[in-house]
Simulated scan of single mutants.
Amino acid sequence: MKYRRLGTSGLKVSEIGLGSWFYGTGSESQSAVECIRKAYELGINFFDNANLYKGGAAEVVLGQTLKDFPRASYVLATKVYFPMGSGPNDRGLSRKHIIEQCEASLQRLNVDYIDLYQCHKYDSETPLEETLRAMDDLISQGKVLYAGVSEWSAAQIIDAVHLAKQLNLRPLISNQPIYNMLVRYIEKEVLPVCERQGLGQVVFSPLAQGILTGKYRAGQVIPADSRAANDSTNKFIASYLKDGVLYCVERLEKVAQGMGVQLPEMALAWVLRQPGVSSAIIGASRPSQIENNVKALEIELTPDLLREIEDILIEIDGFAPAW
C-alpha cells in the first residue's frame, strides 16, 4: 500500500480507501465485515462512512469490525448533513445538528474520536460561520481531529477557507467529490482551488458506480447481480447507461488489455495520477474486488497512454450523470 498526505495536513491516508455506503445489516453486514478486514489486511487505513448510510447501520458495522484493530492504525471518516429524522433540526449544518450527530456517530462507531468529520453537502440555510465554529469546537473537544467537506463548489470552499482564517479557526483539510474518467468537473476549478488552499481530495465513485469495470455493454441486458439491477442503487447508475458512454468504456477496456491490466485498475490509476487526489474511495461487496483494485497502485500511466485515454474521453466531454 502507498500513502499520501491529506492536503497539506500531516495526516496520511492510503491511496485506496474503502467506502461503506451500501453496507448494512443481515447478509450485507457479513460481506461488509469480510471486506473491511481484507482492506485492513492489505494496508488500507482510510475508511469512509456517513451517518446517512443505511440509517446509521453502516457506521455500526464499520465500528464493530474495526474495534479489533489498534485505534491509531486507521483513519476513520464520517459525514453530517442529510436528514436523520423528521424534525426541522434533524438535518443540515446547524450547530445543533452537527453536535448531536457527531455524538450519535461516535456511539454507533464505538470510538472516542473521529479522524475526519465532513460536511456532506453545503447548507445554504445555515451561516457558514456557525458551521465552521461548530466543527472547530468539536476539534477543540478532541471528538474530531480534522474537518473536511464533500461536494462543495470552488467558491464555497474559498469562502470557507477565508472565513476560517479570519476567525482563526482550524483549516479544512479535505474535499470529497465524485471523480472518475467519465465525471471530471473538479478539474476545472475545484482541484486548482483546493491545491492552492491546502485541501486534499478523497474522491468517491472512481469506477463510476461500476460502469468502469466493463460489466455493462451497449445494447446488452443489464447483469442480474449488478448494482444497475438493484432498485436501491439503480438511480445512481442509470444515467451512465447510455450507448455513447458504454462504447467509450469498451474502447478504454481495450487500452487496459493492451497494457496487460484490468479496466478498473487502469481507471483507478488514472484517478490517482492527479497530485491533488489523496485517496480514491472504492466500494466492494467481495474481498476479491479489493485485492484487484489495489493492483492499480502498481500501474504507471505513461504520457503516451494518457494521451490515448484522453482521445477516447474527449468524445464524451461534458457528460454529467444525475447524481
Score class of each variant (00 low, 15 high):
residue 1 M to G: 09
residue 1 M to Y: 08
residue 7 G to W: 00
residue 10 G to E: 13
residue 10 G to F: 08
residue 17 G to D: 04
residue 17 G to N: 05
residue 23 Y to T: 04
residue 30 Q to P: 13
residue 31 S to N: 14
residue 33 V to G: 05
residue 34 E to M: 08
residue 34 E to T: 11
residue 35 C to L: 07
residue 36 I to G: 03
residue 37 R to I: 13
residue 41 E to I: 08
residue 42 L to C: 06
residue 52 L to S: 08
residue 53 Y to I: 07
residue 54 K to W: 11
residue 54 K to N: 13
residue 56 G to K: 05
residue 57 A to E: 15
residue 65 T to P: 04
residue 66 L to V: 00
residue 66 L to K: 01
residue 68 D to K: 11
residue 69 F to T: 04
residue 75 V to F: 02
residue 78 T to P: 10
residue 90 D to Q: 06
residue 92 G to K: 00
residue 96 K to G: 06
residue 96 K to L: 13
residue 106 L to T: 01
residue 112 D to H: 11
residue 115 D to T: 15
residue 115 D to M: 06
residue 117 Y to D: 02
residue 118 Q to E: 04
residue 123 D to K: 01
residue 124 S to I: 11
residue 125 E to I: 05
residue 126 T to Q: 05
residue 130 E to N: 05
residue 132 L to G: 02
residue 132 L to A: 01
residue 133 R to K: 14
residue 134 A to Q: 01
residue 135 M to Y: 02
residue 135 M to S: 02
residue 142 G to I: 03
residue 146 Y to D: 04
residue 147 A to V: 02
residue 151 E to N: 15
residue 154 A to T: 02
residue 155 A to V: 15
residue 160 A to I: 01
residue 162 H to E: 14
residue 162 H to I: 12
residue 164 A to G: 11
residue 166 Q to W: 12
residue 167 L to K: 06
residue 170 R to F: 06
residue 170 R to Q: 12
residue 177 P to F: 01
residue 180 N to V: 04
residue 182 L to G: 02
residue 184 R to K: 11
residue 186 I to F: 09
residue 187 E to Y: 13
residue 191 L to F: 15
residue 197 Q to H: 12
residue 200 G to F: 03
residue 203 V to D: 03
residue 208 A to N: 03
residue 212 L to T: 05
residue 217 R to E: 06
residue 221 V to L: 14
residue 223 P to F: 07
residue 226 S to G: 06
residue 228 A to S: 09
residue 233 T to M: 10
residue 234 N to V: 15
residue 242 K to E: 10
residue 254 K to W: 08
residue 256 A to Y: 04
residue 256 A to L: 04
residue 257 Q to A: 15
residue 257 Q to W: 11
residue 258 G to Y: 05
residue 258 G to N: 14
residue 260 G to Y: 10
residue 262 Q to G: 07
residue 263 L to N: 00
residue 267 A to N: 09
residue 270 W to D: 01
residue 270 W to V: 06
residue 277 V to A: 06
residue 277 V to P: 07
residue 277 V to C: 07
residue 279 S to I: 02
residue 292 N to S: 15
residue 302 T to Y: 09
residue 303 P to C: 10
residue 305 L to P: 05
residue 311 D to Q: 14
residue 313 L to A: 05
residue 314 I to H: 12
residue 323 W to N: 15
